[in-house]
Simulated scan of single mutants.
Amino acid sequence: MNAEPKGSTARDEDLKLDAYLPYRLSVASNAVSGLIARAYQDRFGLTVPQWRLICVLAEDDGLTQGQLVARTVMDKVTVSRAAQGLLNRHLVARSDHHADGRSHVLTLTPAGSGLYAEIAPLALAYEAALISGLAPEEVALLKRLLARLQSAAGQLSGDAVPPRA
């Protein structure tokens, strides 16, 4: 970590894991990701990283692996493995980058686009079920707060990247 948080103390007796926000965010994220991962794996044979690449490519087709790393905030190895799995299944195609001979551009194939069209409604249904107990203004607030937390984490780590809305 590049920066020490302001006002931090080393009083371990004050740390209660169930009340510790980073822990709660991680637990919530793992619960949601696990739920969705099972659905993607069981029904479509996809890992969460593979689904994320398909989704990003459906939004912004024709990206390099470096652009996918930045866009998904996944590490290079995870993106590379996910991309290779999608290539093996002919869900994405790889072509040479016109400006950088060391880089490749990934695009969805018709099969990849078809799979996205099949999964996207399922993803939206899971989101709707997850937020069904929240009022629309609470959902909007939650999204704004998560973006601010992501931004603050990026600034503390020196990797400040504006979150996508």
Rank of each mutant, 00 (worst) to 15 (best):
D12C: 15
E13C: 12
L15N: 06
L15I: 15
L15A: 11
L15C: 10
D18T: 10
D18R: 11
A19G: 12
A19H: 10
A19D: 14
A19R: 14
Y20A: 09
Y20V: 08
P22H: 11
L25G: 05
S26L: 15
A28Y: 07
S29F: 12
S29A: 15
V32C: 12
I36Y: 05
R38M: 07
R38C: 08
R38N: 10
Y40A: 15
Q41K: 11
Q41C: 06
Q41L: 08
D42W: 08
D42C: 07
F44C: 08
F44N: 06
F44S: 06
G45H: 03
L46E: 00
L46H: 02
T47Y: 01
T47F: 01
V48E: 07
P49F: 00
Q50G: 04
Q50M: 09
Q50K: 03
W51S: 09
R52F: 08
C55H: 12
V56Q: 01
E59R: 12
D60C: 08
D60W: 10
G62H: 03
G62E: 06
G62W: 05
G62M: 06
T64R: 06
Q65C: 02
T72K: 00
V73E: 14
D75V: 00
K76T: 04
V79Q: 00
R81I: 03
R81E: 05
A82D: 01
A83P: 00
Q84E: 07
G85D: 01
L86A: 01
R89I: 03
R89Q: 11
V92C: 04
A93L: 09
R94G: 02
S95N: 12
S95G: 10
S95M: 11
S95H: 14
S95C: 10
H97Q: 06
